[in-house]
Simulated scan of single mutants.
Amino acid sequence: MTSTSPAPTPAPPTGRRPASARRRALGLVVCVVALVVACLLSVSFGSRVVGWSDVVAGLLHPDPDDIAQAAVASRVPRTVLGLLVGAALGLAGAVMQGLTRNPLADPGILGVSFGASLFVVVGIAWFGLSTLTGYVWVAFAGAGATMALVYAVGSAGRGGATPLKLALAGAAVTAAVSSMISMVLLTRTDVLNTFRFWQVGSLGRADTSAILTILPFLLVGGVLAVAVARGLDALALGDDLATGLGQHTGTVRALGALAAVLLSGAAVAVAGPIAFIGLVMPHLARGFTGPSHRWVLPYAALFGGVLLVGADVLGRVVARPQELEVGIMTALLGAPVLIAIVRRSKVREL
């Protein structure tokens, strides 16, 4: 005779989240603290170093007759803009990598930033654009047109839009668009002085009106990016499996592409084509969170804000009393981080 032991009684639910979720939430808190520290350093350091008492006074009730407090107040828009642009580029890069399943996808490598740049330089040269509002709309048009072109070229032929084909299409379109930009600038040298400071990537033109101009586009783009997070997780499994899980892949791609265009277009219009943030920050985020886009997106946004604000502070400190543009500093900081990530993870596709 054989006897069967009763099945073990399942443990009652404890009502606590898994430890991994708690660690991720704690990591977000640490990122927020790091971002606050970077913002405080940004309003403190520049051509003039400001003490903490003047920082507090300049933030709460600045005295316009006090030079130190006036310096703090003047740095606040620049700091806020750096935070917004860095977060936007980090989000845009994460969304693009999720949509294409390509670890090299970002607004720069896929040509989106260069497409926006081309439309802006054409607007300056031939249509007399000189305001941020004009830059924003033509940058959106250039970003959207370039993204559509890259995807059309990368999806042609057998196999559809594979990560390798998209990367090659992005490289080809980027080379072509860069040549067009050079052609316009060579024929219109009067535009060169206006364009060259914008092209390198800078936060030096930050003011409240610039922030208010791009803020609605960034908010809409951020909401769309969060809305497609689960769809991006499904796309990572392949289109057939994503459809089987109830995801409308066409809708996910359309909303994700719109989010990426809004985020990258607004960021490029106000600060120029800043490199490496959209490429590196999603990889850095996945190292802490894993592949789930519910966590990758906020981490990438926070990392992007910290890196861009921190790079802007370093650019003001290392060349004092002058400054290095933030686009130069992000390239210097981002390239070693990207090399380290690639050597450690050896990621081929998402």
Rank of each mutant, 00 (worst) to 15 (best):
T208P: 07
T100C: 04
G290N: 06
A169Q: 02
E323F: 06
L28I: 14
G310L: 05
I124T: 15
L218S: 14
R205W: 13
S113T: 06
I277C: 08
L262W: 05
L324E: 06
A269C: 08
T174N: 13
N102Y: 00
W198C: 04
L284A: 11
I339Y: 08
G128M: 05
D312Q: 08
V296N: 10
S178M: 12
A167P: 07
A169C: 02
A94K: 04
T131G: 14
V55G: 06
A105L: 01
N193E: 15
G46W: 03
L99D: 01
I277A: 03
S3K: 11
A57K: 14
A169K: 06
G142N: 09
V280D: 10
M147K: 04
A271L: 00
P163L: 02
V136Q: 07
V313D: 13
S292H: 12
A269G: 05
P298A: 07
T131A: 15
Y135D: 02
L84S: 05
L28A: 15
T189Q: 13
G90D: 04
S209W: 13
A156L: 04
R17K: 09
V30A: 14
W126M: 11
T14R: 04
A87M: 09
L91Y: 03
A227K: 10
S20E: 08
S345Y: 13
A141N: 05
L255E: 11
L35T: 08
V342H: 05
G222M: 01
V120D: 01
V50S: 03
S20T: 11
T289N: 10
P298E: 09
D207M: 05
P273H: 02
W137I: 15
Y299F: 14
D312G: 03
W198K: 01
L255F: 15
L99E: 03
L110D: 07
L149A: 15
V191A: 12
H283G: 02
T9H: 13
A176R: 13
G287D: 08
G86C: 00
P8W: 00
R294W: 11
G51M: 02
L218H: 15
D65F: 10
A57F: 08
L235P: 04
A71F: 06
D66S: 11
R188P: 02
L241H: 09
G144K: 03
S3F: 15
W52P: 15
V261I: 01
V49R: 14
L41R: 12
V112A: 04
A206W: 13
A169I: 00
D63I: 00
P216G: 00
V280A: 06
L99N: 04
R24W: 03
V122E: 13
A11L: 14
A331G: 13
Q69H: 02
V318T: 08
A254L: 06
V95Y: 05
P321N: 03
A331C: 12
V122C: 14
L104G: 00
L307T: 09
